[in-house]
Every structure is written in structure tokens, then in C-alpha cells.
Design a protein around this nucleic acid. Structure first.
Lengths: 262, 262
DNA sequence: CAAGCTTGTTACAGCTTCTAACGAACGCGA
DNA sequence: TCGCGTTCGTTAGAAGCTGTAACAAGCTTG
């Protein structure tokens, strides 16, 4: 009900508002409706618009969790919200735009989880566990980021920026680990890790580090961390271990142990 | 043209037949039409049916390569083949059944690539390179197997069987490597690999090995091989390295080097 | 040859995305 | 306070999809 004709009466008080404590997190916690604090000075109409957009995205996440991103239906979302299908196109110009927003939010969510963890000190093991915790809590978001790509699709600038943030956090932690290691032992024995051929290749192809001062072996370490954790995590989330009997958590822990040098 | 009304006249000579040399491979090479050798005694109708099914699958692979599995359209395939939409339902009872077939074929294709490689001797490095070669040649098949899962979907028995075959091949290679290592050095120093906590866990949860006699450390090695290679490969195929500048092949080689003990 | 099975056709229901035209409510400026 | 433009939600409809039903025509087997 509610929406009979035209804009719903009293739309400002019509929905429970939750002011986001963290100004960055664009992905609401389960069941909450969030309006960012920054555009508090915005016009009522803008606030209502942001509100509806957030509600649409929430229903979208619900649908994705239930049947995957490919089954996302704007029409179904509209019905759930008690309005007609075409009304949603006032808020998202197309289904693709909505999905792009969800992808961006997923990246932001992961970046937030990483940054939050790293704020308690740059610790690779903590980052790894944060990664797994986040992935298990939001598998849909994980697959939106790391799942099957759409052949024609090209990610917008926003996500490449956020992906850079995530990588920077990881590089910070790897750098901290490296300096810590050289502090613990004597100087100049960093070479005991072994300079590989790929390290020298990386030294010449490091623009992806975005100005991060980490030396090539540290870049390589970050890449290895990323690929190995993704290897176990993605297979676990996709259910490839389900029929196998062992505990994926223990496999993850074992892989992390290997990464941290036993 | 061709199809005007009813079954096309002279359908037996209507299409170029290629008799499969390998009786197992259900996935045809690019641009070929394959009919298995075994049901050569089948009725002409059956042969025609298999022929059309294969042609449908070929067009399906083309569509998947172009726009992803979610964009696969039976109607579009029918048009490409010059017949009406509902006609396809004589060959596949639903879109899901077609996709399931494609998934099964993808598994079979990977299993064939593995088996072929292993027939030249059980060599882990060779298996790894075969994996990457296959994945780069058929990224769509890789993502059909290891990509984003559909929440409700449960794989049919056929694919779990084939997945078991793949794992068996990998376990064979890992076993060969282990015995080779113990032959090279003296006896009873297998312990220098280090028995991890996860090894003992695996020793108690090994039914997934399907009766393979490999000891727990070998099981663990197979798992590690699988997850690490998948980690680099899936990120490469999904394009997560594209903007980064370095050569994915070298990252893969480096990871493989690490896996093989430098 | 004749009966039956198989395959193709068109028509249609019901879903989807998305556009177009319209009316009503909001809210800002005068 | 009043009015007018903007925004929003509506219905109608095009074009596409999956999948079903009814029917026509040809192969194939008794």
C-alpha cells in the first residue's frame, strides 16, 4: 500500500532512518537502512532519493543471496517494495547500473574490512583472517568481485581505485613484516628469502603498486598472499570442498601457516 | 532455408560428419562437428539427433564466449541455426539442462587434458602447465567449472565422478613425486617435509580420495597444488592482473617454482 | 502400405527489461 | 501564500526471453 498515486505523502518520516556512523561504508549492515551523514544538508528530495536507492540495493542483495546475480530482477524488487516495475528506473537507469553499484559497494565493503583490521596494526595473519571472515559473511559480494567476469564488462574507475586501496593495505602489511624480519635478525640478510627471476621482472613492472615504496620481493609477497588465499577461499565458497569431508577452515589455516613460514 | 517443414530432407548427408578419434571427448574442437564412434550402430534418427544436439552446444559455447553463460539464449541459438525457438526443446528440455550438459562437457574436457598429459608420465609441472594451457584455451569452460556458483544448483553425479577422475590423476602425480623423492634421498627421511596439524586432520577425512592409497601428506600436497594454481589462474582469467603490468605467465611460473621447491 | 513416433511449425501465456506519455505531489522562488 | 517547474509514480506497450500446447508433415518400423 503506501504508494497510491504520485509521491507518497510524508515521505520524509515514512521510513526509519539510520545515520551511518562510518561515513565511508556504503554497504549497510543486514536489515538496516543507511543514509550517509555528509549530505545531511541536502534537500529533502535528495535524502528521499538516497533512501530509496539504498532500499533498492538492499532488496537486490537479498535476491542475489537467494539466486545469484544473474537472477536479479528489477521487477521483483519493485513488487517487494510495493511499487510498479518502471518506477525503479527513476533510481537506476538500467539493471546493469544497479549491478555496477553493487559491485562497487562490494569492493568498498572489502576495503573497509581490510582497513579496519589494519588499523589495529599491520599484521598479515590478521588480514588473512579478516579476509576469510568477510568472505564467509558476504559470499555474494566476494563472487561479485572475484567471480565469473562478464566478457564485455569493464570495471568503472571507482572500483580500480578501491582495488588499489586494498592492495595498498596489503602492501603496507607486507612491508611491516619485512622490516620486522630484518630488525629481528641482523642486517643485510634479507637475501635469505632468495631473489627470484619473477622478482626482477616485478622490479620492472611495478606501476600497479601505485607509488608504494615496497621493494620487489615485498610486491611478490603481496601477490603470493593474494593468490594463495584467493585459491583456497574461492574454492571453499564455491562449494568445491563440500563433498570432501575435511574442514575448509583447517585447510585455510594450513595454507596461511605455510605462507607465514610454518 | 534447409528447414521448411518437418524434418529436413536428406538429413543424413546434410552436415559434415567428423568421427571422433577419442571416444571419450564430448567437447568438439573449434569448428568441428563430432559424433561419437560408439553409437555408430544407432538408428539414423539417433545419429541426426546427436548431430543437432552437438550443433546446439557449439552455438551455446559461442554465445557463452561472447556474453557469458547468463546471457545464453535458446531462442538466439535457434535463430542462428535457422529454426524456430521452441524446436530446441525437442533436444534440451530446458535452458538449465543445456547448461548442465555444457558444465559436464567442460569437466570432461579438463579431465581429458589431464589424462592426456599424465599419459606421458606423471609429472606435476607438466600437469600444471597443461592446466594453464587448457584454461587459457577455454576460459569459458574454466569459469563454468570454477566460477560463480548458482546458489540453488547441485551438480549431477556425472560431474562429481569426473571431478574424482581429475583428482585421481593429480593424486597419482603427487604419489609418483613422493616416491621419487624418497628414492633419491635415503629412506625414512620423508619426515623432513614436516607433518602438519592439517595432515593429521586429513588422515581422518580422506574419503574424498576415493580409495586412493596416497598417505595424508600426499593428499595435502594435491590440495595445495590445486588451490594455489587455481588462485593464480582464476585471477588471471578474470582479468584481475590486466591493469597491473606484469606478465601473468611469469607469476604462474614463479608460483609453480615455489610449489616444486624453488 | 499403414500406423506411430519424431520433429518441426505457429500461437500463446507469462516473465523480463526498458521507453513513452500522463497525472499528481512536492517544494522552491516570488 | 501562491504558482510553476521538477520529480516521482503510474499505466500502456514494444521487444525479448523461457516454456507449453496444438497441429502438420516426414521418417521408420511392423
Amino acid at each position: 500500500m503506501g504508494h497510491v498515486k504520485g509521491m507518497p505523502e510524508g515521505f520524509l518520516e515514512g521510513m526509519p532512518l539510520v545515520i551511518a556512523s562510518n561515513g565511508r561504508s556504503a554497504v549497510p549492515a543486514r536489515g538496516e537502512k543507511v543514509v550517509s551523514m555528509a549530505p545531511n544538508t541536502a534537500s529533502p528530495r535528495d535524502r528521499y532519493r538516497a533512501q530509496v536507492r539504498a532500499e533498492i540495493k538492499e532488496h537486490a542483495w537479498g535476491q542475489i543471496a537467494g539466486a545469484g546475480a544473474s537472477a536479479l530482477s528489477l521487477n521483483a524488487i519493485a513488487k517487494q517494495m510495493g511499487m510498479s516495475g518502471p518506477a525503479l528506473y527513476r533510481y537506476f537507469s538500467s539493471r546493469d547500473e544497479l549491478i555496477t553499484e553493487l559491485v562497487t559497494d562490494a569492493y568498498r565493503s572489502l576495503a573497509d574490512a581490510f582497513r579496519t583490521t589494519a588499523s589495529d596494526g599491520p599484521d598479515l595473519a590478521g588480514l588473512a583472517h579478516a579476509m576469510r571472515r568477510w568472505a564467509l559473511e558476504y559470499p555474494q559480494r566476494y563472487f561479485l568481485i572475484y567471480g565469473t567476469p562478464v566478457p564485455g564488462y569493464h570495471a568503472p574507475d571507482a572500483v580500480t581505485t578501491i582495488a588499489g586501496d586494498i592492495m595498498a593495505t596489503l602492501l603496507d602489511a607486507c612491508t611491516a613484516e619485512a622490516t620486522e624480519a630484518t630488525d629481528a635478525t641482523d642486517a643485510d640478510n634479507t637475501a635469505d628469502v632468495g631473489e627470484t627471476a619473477f622478482d626482477t621482472h616485478l622490479a620492472h613492472h611495478r606501476q600497479w603498486a601505485g607509488g608504494h615504496p615496497a621493494p620487489a620481493p615485498v610486491l611478490r609477497r603481496a601477490l603470493t598472499f593474494w593468490t594463495r588465499l584467493h585459491g583456497v577461499l574461492s574454492l571453499e565458497l564455491a562449494g568445491h570442498f563440500t563433498g570432501m569431508g575435511f574442514d575448509p577452515a583447517q585447510l585455510f589455516a594450513a595454507e596461511l601457516d605455510g605462507l607465514l613460514g610454518r
